[in-house]
């Protein structure tokens, strides 16, 4: 099993989108503390210069808080950047191989279908974690060098952990769609369509929840709407925002992410077991 996993991981890491994703993750991790620090320094320099020309007393320099680089890195990676790579890499892992018929060559070895699928999924999950760590670790180290103070380091790191869970859920979902559609464009379109529907549903529920104007006798609808909303995929994907003390951790979102992971992998196995490989 380990050698099948190694084969899949080395193959995945040799793919261009996967490499590019890791580079972007690393660049985010390295650059973000510098960007935040540089931004603060530029603001300070501009403020000092203005104060000097106005004859006002200048401010003392204070570096950004320790967590601010991590926070911006977390926000940036979760603003479609890594999501895009997760979808790309997730779709090529199975669908591209099916289309290129290289999957057939793997199937001609003495490898059980479930083991092959699990190895592909595990390689994807490893890649997703690696991309997370490539942002988190350099960002943390850079922040420790450049910044000081602040008390949200642990909370934001917990946000990174929740973000990792969301990445695994997304990549598992993309993987399942790629097994079901067996096509890269089909996977991307399927995931996009699901996102649109999920967001539309979330929006509709949000509007309904905000209105609170249900006819007499139908107030229970409002209760259901409020209960359903945290379970939506899009809400669950934002579970990382629980790092903020003013936003409570949505446990439903975390549970939903786990359900998506288990459900997606189960669906992938069920589909692949019956699949004809050309």
């Amino acid at each position: 099993m380990l050698s099948i996993y190694r084969a899949e991981l080395s193959k995945l890491l040799s793919r261009l989108p996967a490499r590019l994703g890791l580079i972007v993750a690393l660049v985010m991790g390295v650059a973000m503390p510098m960007v935040v620090y540089g931004g603060r320094w530029a603001a300070f320099a501009a403020g000092t210069s203005m104060a000097l020309s106005a004859g006002a007393p200048t401010m003392d320099w204070s570096p950004p808080e320790l967590h601010s680089g991590l926070l911006w890195a977390l926000r940036t990676r979760n603003f479609f950047v890594m999501g895009t790579f997760l979808i790309l890499v997730g779709s090529v892992t199975f669908a591209a191989e099916y289309q290129a018929r290289t999957l057939r060559e793997d199937m001609l070895r003495a490898v059980p279908r479930v083991a092959l699928l699990f190895a592909k999924w595990a390689a994807l999950v490893s890649w997703a974690f690696a991309s997370l760590l490539l942002t988190w670790i350099p960002c943390l180290l850079g922040s420790l060098v450049l910044m000081s103070g602040g008390d949200k380091l642990l909370a934001i790191s917990a946000g990174f952990a929740a973000s990792g869970l969301a990445d695994v859920a997304l990549v598992s979902f993309v993987f399942a769609v790629s097994v079901l559609t067996r096509s890269v464009p089909g996977t991307i379109a399927g995931v996009f369509l699901f996102y649109v529907l999920d967001y539309a549903l979330g929006l509709a529920l949000g509007v309904a929840s905000a209105l609170h104007a249900y006819p007499r006798g139908y107030e229970w609808v409002g209760t259901i709407v409020d209960q359903v909303q945290p379970w939506l995929f899009s809400s669950a994907m934002n579970a990382w925002k629980g790092w903020d003390p003013t936003v409570p951790w949505a446990w439903q979102g975390l549970v939903m992410l786990c359900l998506v992971i288990v459900g997606s992998f189960t669906a992938s196995v069920a589909a692949f077991q019956r699949m004809d490989v050309p």
């Binding site: 050698s3 099948i4 190694r6 084969a7 080395s10 193959k11 040799s14 793919r15 261009l16 290129a100 018929r101 290289t102 057939r104 060559e105 793997d106 001609l108 070895r109 003495a110 490898v111 092959l116």
Partner: peptide, 27 residues
């Protein structure tokens, strides 16, 4: 061992790397 229709490979990998992939899968 089998070849079904035209054998397919990961084009961006070398011939040896493709064989290493198969060897890993075969344990």
């Amino acid at each position: 061992g089998a070849i079904i229709e035209t054998p397919t490979f990961h084009g961006w990998m070398s011939g040896r790397a493709n064989l290493e992939q198969a060897a890993l899968l075969s344990g």
